[in-house]
Amino acid sequence: MLETATLWAALCAYALVAALAFAGPMARTSLHRRCATALIAALVLHTLSLGLRWATLGHGPFTTLHEILSSNLWSLSLVLLVACWAVREVRSVVIAAVPVLLVLGTWLLMAHPGAGHLPATYDTPLLYIHTLVGKLYLGLLLVAVALGSVPLWRRTAWGRRRWTGDPDDRRFDQMAHRFAAYALVFDTLMLIVGAVWAQDAWGRYWAWDPLESWAFASWLALAGALHARATLRPPPWHFGLWLAGSFALAFLTFFGVPFISTAPHKGAV
């Protein structure tokens, strides 16, 4: 009961973050502070909700769609908050990241909150390492997409008004590149840890099952975007589009494939 109440309170706080982000340019310090405070409140409440669920079920949020959505909403928000604190440019692009958080929050409301079964093969430290690097990958990529989207938005009148007084496109492109580069490193680590885990759990490190194939395609998309940036020297808004495509693939891999595919990976647990 308390878990549900705190989750709802957290979702309300996320909605407030979205409202503040849409309200005006984050360059206005007061608005940025209010937005950051709302995000901190949402994260505190969400952490409490996840902790209560963990204590009740005896395992972390690793099994059902509800748990995966909830834990990723939490981790993406945390990465966004830390990035806002560490990098000034990120503060002005919260609005570009918020739609993803809203999608996850709304989907979470529709997902069945019932308890799942933790398979025996999840009883390993590799679960935590795999999850941690995976969440860092998706979080960093989300920030990269948000930064990379500014040059794209600036092609519209609304975007030009919205990001007036912010750094130029080149700076956003540069920052998006940095976040995307580290996202690739964590994506690579996620695939490596996943392969080690698969070897110990199922006796094969890679079998091209649907989830592995989608994960590899996401890695290729991001590696391709970074290579293309160095080779083709595209305008910043092009790089922003490539990053958005990479994120879309990653989003499907995280939240679509494991719950749609009936083949191996999930079945093999």
């Binding site: 040059p151 600036r154 030009r160 990001w163 080149r170 590149h177 160095a230 020297r233 910043p236 808004w237």
Partner: peptide, 14 residues
């Protein structure tokens, strides 16, 4: 620098 929509960035290696 002031906003220059659609400006081309200076590239670095992937």
């Amino acid at each position: 620098r002031p906003v220059v929509p659609g400006g081309r960035p200076e590239m670095d290696h992937a």
